[in-house]
Simulated assay, not measured.
Amino acid sequence: MASDLDTGKIGLTYGQTHAASSKFIIVLKGRAGHISKPHKGVDAIIMAAEVIQALQRIRTRQVDPMETVLIGIGRIKGGDRYNIIPERVEIEGTLRTLSMEVHKKIPALMEKAISCITSSMGGEYELTFVEGYPGGINHPDTTKFVENCGVKLLGRDKIEIISKPSMGGEDFSCFLQKVPGTFIRLGGGGENYKYSLHHPKFDINEDSLVIGAALFCQIVFEFLG
């Protein structure tokens, strides 16, 4: 379901459709104390601020600028009270790349940056990577077949060829590594359906479900001849 695509349309991509994605968890460990005596503690929040900045510099200073890399932070948790130096901060985020080769190199760069920062400030850390999904690559023949089915069912003006891959992760990418296939974006956007996935106001335009079901039927009929 794609809210950035009008209801009634479908979107197809020839080639890479999604990024490779992984989740990471960073635990920074300092030493608690009264905030009036910062020299006697190790502030995990200050460490976290330095770490987050350093992670962004990996993309801009340690990776070929022609490569697409996203290191995003989605959750930070640390501290219990305004006047206590926190001894622990948890950071959760995601690594997204279009190249699997680049994807495999980033964790070591992250570890080096985090290690340098925490050791220089007298802290410790734990870094955990949770393997996600590979980059999704649509099979050209299957994509063309689905495009032709869409044109026959909906008309040429309802088929949108999307040239750029999404930096989203997709479990369907695992299937694409095993058998030829293509990822179809089902348009679900409109005046009352403008919020994207993961937005708290996201809603499904149920009118698009009819189109999706009809397209799958068309694909089956055409495939069976």
Rank of each mutant, 00 (worst) to 15 (best):
S3N: 09
S3P: 08
D6R: 09
T7C: 10
G8W: 00
I10C: 14
G11N: 03
Q16W: 03
Q16D: 12
H18T: 15
H18E: 13
H18M: 15
S21W: 03
S21Q: 12
S22C: 07
S22R: 08
S22Y: 03
K23W: 05
K23F: 04
K23L: 07
F24H: 02
F24Y: 08
I26N: 05
V27E: 12
L28S: 07
K29G: 09
K29M: 09
G30Q: 08
G30L: 06
R31S: 04
R31I: 05
R31H: 12
A32K: 15
G33R: 08
H34P: 12
I35G: 15
I35H: 10
K37D: 15
K37A: 14
K37V: 15
K37F: 12
P38R: 00
P38A: 01
P38E: 04
H39E: 14
H39N: 15
K40F: 10
G41T: 09
G41S: 12
V42D: 07
A44M: 06
A44R: 10
A44H: 05
I46L: 14
I46M: 10
I46V: 14
A48P: 06
A48C: 09
A48F: 00
A49G: 14
E50M: 10
E50R: 13
V51F: 03
Q53H: 14
A54T: 06
L55T: 00
L55F: 04
R59I: 15
R59P: 10
T60M: 14
Q62A: 11
V63T: 09
M66T: 15
E67I: 12
T68D: 13
V69S: 04
I71P: 07
G72P: 02
I73S: 01
I73W: 03
G74P: 01
K77D: 12
K77S: 12
K77I: 11
G78S: 02
G79I: 02
N83P: 12
N83V: 11
I84E: 03
E87C: 03
R88H: 03
R88Q: 09
E92H: 08
R96L: 07
L98Q: 07
L98R: 04
S99L: 11
S99P: 13
S99C: 11
M100C: 08
V102F: 01
K104A: 13
K105V: 03
I106A: 10
P107A: 02
A108F: 01
